[in-house]
Design a protein around this nucleic acid. Sequence first.
DNA 1: ACGCATTATCAAGGTTTTCTCAAGGCGTGA
DNA 2: TCACGCCTTGAGAAAACCTTGATAATGCGT
Lengths: 227, 227
Amino acid sequence: MARIILIEDDIEIRRLVAGALAREGHDVETAATAMSGLELAIRNTPDLVIMDLGLPDLDGTELLRMIRAISSVPVMVITARGADDAVVHTLDAGADDYLVKPFSVAQLLARVRALLRRGSHVEGSDRVVVGGLVIDISAREASLEGAALDLSPKEFDLLRSLAERQGEVVTKRELLAEVWREPYGGSERTVDVHLSWLRKKLGETASEPRFLRTVHGVGVKLVPPES
Amino acid sequence: MARIILIEDDIEIRRLVAGALAREGHDVETAATAMSGLELAIRNTPDLVIMDLGLPDLDGTELLRMIRAISSVPVMVITARGADDAVVHTLDAGADDYLVKPFSVAQLLARVRALLRRGSHVEGSDRVVVGGLVIDISAREASLEGAALDLSPKEFDLLRSLAERQGEVVTKRELLAEVWREPYGGSERTVDVHLSWLRKKLGETASEPRFLRTVHGVGVKLVPPES
DNA sequence: ACGCATTATCAAGGTTTTCTCAAGGCGTGA
DNA sequence: TCACGCCTTGAGAAAACCTTGATAATGCGT
């Protein structure tokens, strides 16, 4: 699983590519303009950017330079311009691969795999994904539907403990042991309160749960929200 | 300048490509068969391997697998076979790029540059770019939005330690160990103060952070600024 | 439907962590 | 020696966070 940003104005191609990538298990965000794509590339710290060269608001090479100025993320360019000096020019501006439309989706996916294969060695960030909830352990940050969550230390640890055993019911005692480092003492009330805060930040309540389902008499479990 | 191995049986193409690469300043070794190419790849620890898929003594994919078994060197495949599943198959076998003959030499060179650019980044990562902040490690200098920063030794080491693990949370203890060489003793106050100075030079404050985000109870991390 | 046990939430108070300032030490070069 | 830049340390204030106890709500078995 990788975070991929797709910047493409043609809605047909966007759907086609985004769908194929999603089917490979990737987390895809799309943008139809250069500026919104740039913003995504800054905010989401993606593992790969795929961009069209012919965007409505800005020349693709310009966008590429802007991305390169702030990040070394792998960039794949897809475009109708197949002229040789366009390819050379774009690659030298910092692109990692260049695919000419119309292209085969299978080949695109294979090239994406090749780029990610190289990139994955660079970072040691491991993530846990539950529905629209993404938890990045080494960066110690979590986001819900792309929007960053502002979690306190205990809240994050709590969420991580639940995420590492997603779908499983975890007792408050276990959470006290894992998060609070208190295998015996400690009050289970404390866990309740933190769960409540977490719920608030996840946009849910105990009576309308989405991610955090309490199992009466046993504990809680973290699950992807229903439909 | 990079060490490149070219495995290609067609003498015309071999001369053409090897000549062009040499003219770019690279150190090129050629082989006409898979076995001699493999030997070169083992002995010479190249920065890049360019290989034909249709070699006389061994199937190209087989050679690719053998190379991959012993090395993670970038491999570029050039071949007459343009069929889509050949491309997919080869990329998935570990190739980094795939160019169909007849190709333009200019494009080949541009793709070589792209591969080498990435390869050198992985190895002795000498420059770290995060947002508008550029840290040149071997030159021991940093610049913000193009303007050089005047950092004291400790400030630079601190910034470098954070940059080398950008996006990751680093504890003050770890910084004391890495920057101050004091894995146990040492006061975390010291780190705080240096962070404060660094912030001032980066044009930010703790309450209005751009690059240095403190993670309460854990440490700090270096991230690209938002928007 | 009733009562008990468990869970949810709130508000208040206390604790820990972080930030910044200012003072002083140390070494270098003028 | 003096001036200067650099580093360390201590202290106070501010901010962020955690815990607790009380009360309301909910679930479960009878």
